[in-house]
């Protein structure tokens, strides 16, 4: 039964010296779900993400992906099937859009140095396949026309989309999105919403950190609220929205202006 959960985090705690940033957080994400993670700034959301992806080794607790405990090394976590985007966009600025996505594909291909030097038919086939898959993803995110542009020259909204496309290139079972609509206008936010639905429909579960309440409540099957490193409440959108403690922790209205 445990592998129907794409993500199963139990008792995750992260301590830095005297500071406990994340305290005993449990979270489960089933395949086909979109789960939201909200909370005021500094609540430990990104730290929690970093614990999931191996960037930090949790002081306590375990993280399981489809039943297996993940080794705390980011590249192995991605290989297992969890991909992520970053709060501050971390694209490969001097690579083209296509190259960024090709790099995302790295863990699903295996042609190494020898193959690159010999350039046999296997190498050519692998490169062609990777390109095809990458272009497909660019189509999916609406960036196909800019495949040969340098990533740093894209406008902000498209950079965010590129990050998502790059993360999807590793065929993940779970996608972690860290504030994907930060700095976007309502129109762009709506487009992102549709994109996330499409991602879920393709078979990837999504766990998203956001401050935009409307976005979160439209999108997510379940929402968890983190305050000062602890999970305050978890449930459907209505349950969380109505909880007084959540409203108190946030200074926003239920209209949910973007932070």
């Amino acid at each position: 039964m445990s592998d129907e959960y794409v993500l199963d985090a139990t008792g995750v705690t992260m301590r830095f010296g005297g500071l406990t940033a994340v305290r005993g957080v449990d979270l489960r994400v089933g395949s086909g779900e979109i789960v939201g993670l909200i909370g005021p700034n500094g609540a430990g959301k990104t730290t929690f993400f970093n614990c999931l992806t191996g960037l930090y080794v949790p002081t306590e607790g375990t993280v399981r992906y489809r039943g297996t405990v993940l080794p705390p090394k980011p590249h192995l976590v991605t290989k297992a099937g969890i991909a992520r985007t970053f709060q501050n966009i971390r694209l490969f600025a001097h690579m083209t859009v296509l190259e960024n996505v090709l790099v995302g594909r790295h863990t699903r291909t295996k042609e190494g140095l020898l193959s690159a030097l010999l350039r046999g038919p296997g190498f050519r086939r692998a490169e062609a396949e990777s390109r095809e898959r990458a272009l497909e993803l660019l189509e999916f995110t609406g960036l196909a026309a800019k495949a040969d542009h340098l990533a740093r020259n894209l406008p902000y909204g498209e950079q965010r989309k590129l990050e998502i496309a790059r993360a999807l290139a590793s065929d993940p079972g779970l996608l972690l999105l860290d504030e994907p609509t930060a700095g976007m206008n309502p129109q762009e936010t709506r487009v992102t919403e549709e994109l996330v639905f499409a991602i879920r429909d393709r078979g990837t579960a999504v766990l998203v950190i956001e401050h935009d309440m409307r976005f979160i409540f439209n999108l997510c099957d379940r929402v968890a609220c983190l305050v000062q490193g602890e999970k305050l409440v978890e449930g459907t959108a209505d349950v969380v929205r109505g909880d007084e403690r959540v409203v108190a922790a946030y200074l926003g209205t239920t209209e949910g202006a973007a932070a």
Binding site: F86, R90, M95, G112, S170
Partner: peptide
């Protein structure tokens, strides 16, 4: 030339640009 334009070469550029992001993309830096 061959290694520069290959999966390995791309991974190197990615590591050079942003090692944290590169490892997050599955690259064993």
């Amino acid at each position: 030339q061959r290694v520069g334009e290959s999966r390995t070469g791309r991974a190197w550029v990615a590591i050079r640009e942003d090692e944290t992001a590169a490892t997050a993309m599955g690259i064993n830096s």
